[in-house]
């Protein structure tokens, strides 16, 4: 049986992790390599690096981060933030990333999904989508949630699958930071529409929330951000809880 994945997300600013974990056995919570090794030892299933600087200099340091981390941690690595061209993507893959997530650039020019998918394979292309509920619809936002589009999320997810994305990273902006659970209604709808894996993001405040997103939202994976970084829960605690509740998890 395929297991559900728990994926810590590290926000990188100028080569350093911001919002780092507070576990006692971490010496430098800002060092991406140390944190990646820590999460790997905790049996994280993948890692996501999100470049929040997205400046030219920030980008260079991110490439170094990916090179370093991929030499010591042998689990899938996804890099996102400011990837605009096939060449941006190639540089990340050659540095050691396994997948690249495309967000705003894909809304501006959806052909980038197809181009990258044809060039490197669909498994490398993660479509990151930020959405907000309005009435009965979910609307897609770009640029870290600052810009509203007129795109309906339930149409867009089908679209990115057809364009060649291999996976969807779905963030509910309503739920993000709320600590009151994932948008399971949205997750379930998206999971019924697409036939590619969906990573749930935004809203985790307790173990039960993670369970609900996997069980009722039918998510294939969970992006664990602040719930793990702030030392509220460890990946091990999360995994043990989910196993106890009969979710297929790798230990």
């Amino acid at each position: 049986m395929l297991t559900k994945r728990i994926i810590p997300c590290l926000d990188i600013d100028k080569g350093r992790v911001v919002k780092g974990v507070n576990f006692i056995n971490i010496k430098d919570a800002g060092d991406p390599t140390e944190l990646a090794e820590f999460y790997n030892s905790e049996v994280a299933d993948e890692l996501v690096f999100l470049d929040i600087t997205a400046t030219h200099e920030g980008r260079k340091t991110l490439i170094d981060v990916v090179k370093k981390v991929s030499s010591v941690v042998f689990i899938p690595l996804t890099v996102g933030g400011g990837i605009r061209t096939i060449n941006d993507m190639r540089i990340m893959l050659e540095a050691g990333a396994d997948k690249v997530s495309l967000n705003s650039s894909a809304i501006k020019n959806s052909a980038i999904i197809t181009d990258c998918s044809k060039e490197f394979g669909a498994q490398c292309v993660v479509s990151a989508i930020d959405v907000k509920k309005e009435g009965d619809d979910w609307i897609v936002y770009t640029h870290g949630g600052r810009n509203k589009t007129n795109i309906n999320a339930l149409e867009w997810v089908k679209n990115v699958e057809e364009l060649g994305a291999g996976e969807i990273l779905l963030t509910s902006m309503d739920k993000d930071g709320s600590n009151n659970g994932y948008d399971n209604e949205l997750l379930e709808k998206v999971n019924n529409i697409v036939n590619i894996p969906v990573i749930a993001s935004g809203g985790a405040g307790s173990l039960k929330h993670l369970y609900e997103a996997l069980k009722f939202g039918k998510a294939d994976a969970i992006l664990a951000a602040s719930i793990c970084h702030f030392g509220i829960l460890s990946i091990k605690e999360v995994k043990n809880y989910l196993i106890k509740n009969k979710i297929n998890i790798r230990l």
Binding site: L2, D45, Q123, D220, R250
Partner: peptide
């Protein structure tokens, strides 16, 4: 095979 749409393709993730 996409049996009853229960199994997504690609088969992506950790399996035994």
């Amino acid at each position: 095979p996409k049996l009853k749409n229960k199994f997504k393709v690609p088969h992506m993730g950790w399996n035994q």
